[in-house]
Design a protein around this nucleic acid. Structure first.
Lengths: 131, 131
DNA sequence: CATCGTTATGCCAATTTAGGCATAATGATT
DNA sequence: AATCATTATGCCTAAATTGGCATAACGATG
């Protein structure tokens, strides 16, 4: 019986500052949503997370990198809102570029290196079952 | 005050099979140690983990990929031991090659994309402190 | 000056993950 | 057949991470 392997490479890349996570994909999506919606609250809702969690992520990044990410206002019609600072916009933009590039490379290198491994393993009969 | 950013890119790559983690760096080190020491127990000790944990990782990978990783014997002088199957050796070898290549690329692309970003941010004065 | 939706933050609960204790089985060696 | 270091595995505990509840402050608008 041929036991086809459908192995796949996954990866996660993040930016660290002094050993702590400073920025990663989740935060990039969050900032991108804030930029589009004009509000952290709305962005959190769209991503299915609580405002509390979203705010905490933003704060953690601001503290780690020492830069301000959001320009906020409170009060007024609509209660207020948030927009990205220029630094935040650039961080999001560069991180996106970085992730896209790495996604391409991770996939390409995986295929190059593991290609014939999978084929060979799939054809050998193995005592696969756990018990 | 110049607030120098020493941001760094970190990454983790793993192989998935049907959504579950099948292989990653920790397991590669474990198998590498088994290959060198001839025993899963000794390998676990060297890596500072319990035999229970090490055994669990191996089993999880064997189940996920449907291949046997260790050829084991019990009893006799020394109590027994474990050696890598040819498939395990190849998996370790290819994964190592993959990781080394990606480490190189992650670093290189990071520098290429973020280089001047850090410089600019570092020079602007920021209200860095959390409070 | 009351309203309303947003930002801001402490605090506790819950879920997930990892670790390790305990115990059985193995089998060549003596 | 007693020994001994290893493999094998169930089960419970601890730790770390995440999520969300509750509540305060804000301030332009009407």
């Amino acid at each position: 019986m041929i036991n086809k392997i459908v192995m796949k490479a996954k990866f996660k890349i993040w930016l660290e500052e002094k050993g702590g996570v400073a920025f990663a994909e989740g935060r990039r999506m969050l900032l991108e949503a804030v930029d589009r919606l004009g509000s952290l609250n709305a962005a959190a809702k769209e991503l299915g997370m609580s405002y509390r969690a979203a705010w905490g992520k933003i704060k953690a990044t601001e503290k780690a990198l020492g830069i301000k990410l959001l320009e906020v206002t409170t009060g007024g019609k609509g209660g207020g809102g948030a927009t990205l600072t220029p630094e935040a916009k650039e961080l999001v933009s560069k991180y996106k570029q970085y992730i896209d590039r790495m996604t391409f490379l991770v996939e390409g290198e995986y295929i190059r290196i593991f290609e014939n491994f999978e084929i060979r393993i799939s054809k050998s009969k193995t005592n696969s079952n756990t018990k």
